Simulated scan of single mutants.
Amino acid sequence: MFRASYTAYPLTFVRPVGTSRGVLRQKPCWFIQITGEDGRAGLGEVSIIPKLSLENPDEFEIQIDHLCKLIGLGEMDPLQALPSMPGVQFALETAMLDRKQGGERLLFPSEFTKGNAGIRTNGLIWMGSREFMVSQVREKMKLGCSVLKLKVGALDMKEELQVLRWIRNEFSSSDLEIRLDANGAWDPEEAGGKLELYARYDIHSIEQPIAAGQVEDMRELCKNPAIPVALDEELIGINGPEAKRALLQEISPAYVILKPGLLGGFSLTGEWIRLADEMKIGWWITSALESNIGLNAIAQWSWQLGVTRHQGLGTGALYTNNISSPLQMSGEQLWYRPEKGWDLSKITVL
């Protein structure tokens, strides 16, 4: 028998960040704690991105309260499938793994958690004015980043192309890999032409150029040789190995971007990895703007997979009220510094 409790913990951005879905100033977050009869407890995080996550933030408090009561009554297995609530499934899986390992947030002990190795991570460039984006690029390059991911699709295209032109004048493709993320912002009719324009600047890949659910249009874009296409939002809500296989076969992307916090946790994300490897589709793992609780779990899981490509895990400094943790960015690598320890004092209601 387990006891489940939860608390809301809205995350506040250091500065408002721009995406094609709008400007984010705060992000909903809930922590779930699972406690066993032996007193050992594990902690997980539900990361919700409005307009992207399947869960509805306006109804979520009622739903999570009900689920925690069911777990406490023994009427629900914390590890049961929750296809309509992948963020909760991720949190519960994480909490159960944490509890199993002693409740010290060492879910996957490794050389990474010993502090002996880091994970290469892309630098994330948010949308904003040309000057703001250039300043972010300069900052990331000073830190030693060799891969940058730029959010595109919300600004005037000429401004975005000017930023890319400036970057390529300063840094060649041998010095800097550029990944783009449109978050589904482009119309299918214009996306092909835009790919051709952006391709002039030696772009490695573009995530989700058009909105999810337009399978035929996405398949045609993936045939365009200008820029390799990566699926991201397209994967959310696709359940079961056969449905996943069918989607990848239908669209045939170059890459898939894997966010365990939006895809239902590690076991279900692993299904995407196995299929991608089988079909020779590239992949990398990114956070879904989690706090350090969720980011820590994702980073530890990523390391034990043996990842070598740059992942998307450099989001720990986004919030003014993040949870103090051993995670630390150094250059372009994410490290776990065990001597730093955790400070969970901000999580007071569990």
Rank of each mutant, 00 (worst) to 15 (best):
E61C: 03
I62H: 11
I62L: 10
I62N: 09
Q63T: 08
Q63Y: 08
I64Y: 03
L67K: 02
L67E: 00
C68M: 03
L70H: 09
L70A: 13
I71T: 04
G72I: 08
L73M: 14
L73I: 05
G74H: 08
E75S: 09
D77K: 02
L79S: 09
Q80N: 05
L82T: 04
M85H: 13
M85S: 11
P86S: 01
G87I: 15
V88K: 04
V88M: 13
Q89A: 13
F90Q: 04
L92V: 10
T94N: 03
A95R: 12
A95D: 10
L97W: 14
L97F: 10
G102Y: 12
L107P: 00
L107Y: 06
P109L: 01
S110P: 08
E111N: 15
G115Q: 00
N116M: 02
N116L: 05
G118S: 11
I119N: 03
I119W: 00
R120G: 05
R120N: 07
N122A: 11
G123R: 09
L124W: 02
W126K: 12
W126G: 10
M127D: 00
S129Y: 04
R130C: 00
F132S: 15
M133I: 07
V134A: 02
Q136M: 07
Q136R: 07
R138Y: 09
E139S: 09
E139K: 11
K140A: 10
K140H: 13
K142W: 01
L143I: 02
G144S: 02
G144F: 02
C145N: 12
S146N: 09
L148R: 04
V152D: 12
G153P: 13
A154W: 10
A154L: 08
D156W: 11
K158P: 00
K158G: 05
E159Y: 01
E159D: 14
E160D: 13
E160M: 07
L161E: 08
L161W: 00
